[in-house]
Amino acid sequence: MREFLKRHRVAISSFLALVVPLFLLYVHGRSPRKTTIVEVALLRLTAPVEAAAADAMAGVKSVWSRYVALVDLAEENARLAKDVEILTAEALAAKELRHENARLRDLLQFKRERQDLETIAAHIIGQDVSPFARVVRVSIDAGSSDGVEEGMPVVSAQGLVGRIKVVSGRYAEVMLAVDARSSINVRVAGKGVSGNLEGTGANDEYSARLLYLQKAEPLVVGDTVVTSGHDKVFPPGLEVGYIRSLEERQRGVYYELQVAPAVNFSILEEVAIVIGHSDADEAEAPAPGKGGER
């Protein structure tokens, strides 16, 4: 028997290896049937391993998706940063436009109030700044080709800026009212006091001094100083500044008072050059919009 098995072991094992699975297949292929012990055993063997494999895959997937998410996050962050940059620039541009719009409205209002003045508008294109960050001279984008001539008054919505000092084809330089070389014939609005306003040329502040011979009535701090028009250079009634202090100093036969300019030269962006004006009511022209009082 043993000899038989040994001699035919290949055939016998092949036979068994085919019959056993075929029998299992026959049993499990029937329908209807109950769950067999073989199926339960296989399930117990494979299910935990399959579950562990699925968990491992889920872990790998999680790590991978987090990594990919981080990559996406970095891209999104860069995109958002760019968006913020663009929007910030747009917001700044809009803010700048709002400010420019307000300034131009003021200038337009000034032109409506002073219809006796023939003006052309210009942008400030350059500023000379003192070591104390004070603007001492400005350049504008209007010149002789626009009809601008030396000595013409330059105004803004706030008041007198100065006069044209140098003119070239399309550009001009403006000497500010606070320049040490500047001298303007002025009067204190509503007070019957006339005199000359001279710039101090101070590096650390915008200031001018009012030189006068005598005052008909007492002055107060804040009184408006306007152009008188007597010098035939500046039209009358342009606001120049305000009395800053009542401390009088005597210079020869003149008395001297400190005047703060009406215009903030540091934030000046647009100006108007007075290229002509009617003389009809020049001596009586009021200070713009303020009735001569601040």
Partner: peptide, 22 residues
Amino acid sequence: ALGLGLLKDGFVMASPVGLYMV
């Protein structure tokens, strides 16, 4: 091969046990 067939039968639940063994 028998064992591997049985193993595959365990993982492929839709087929009757014994199919992949054969």
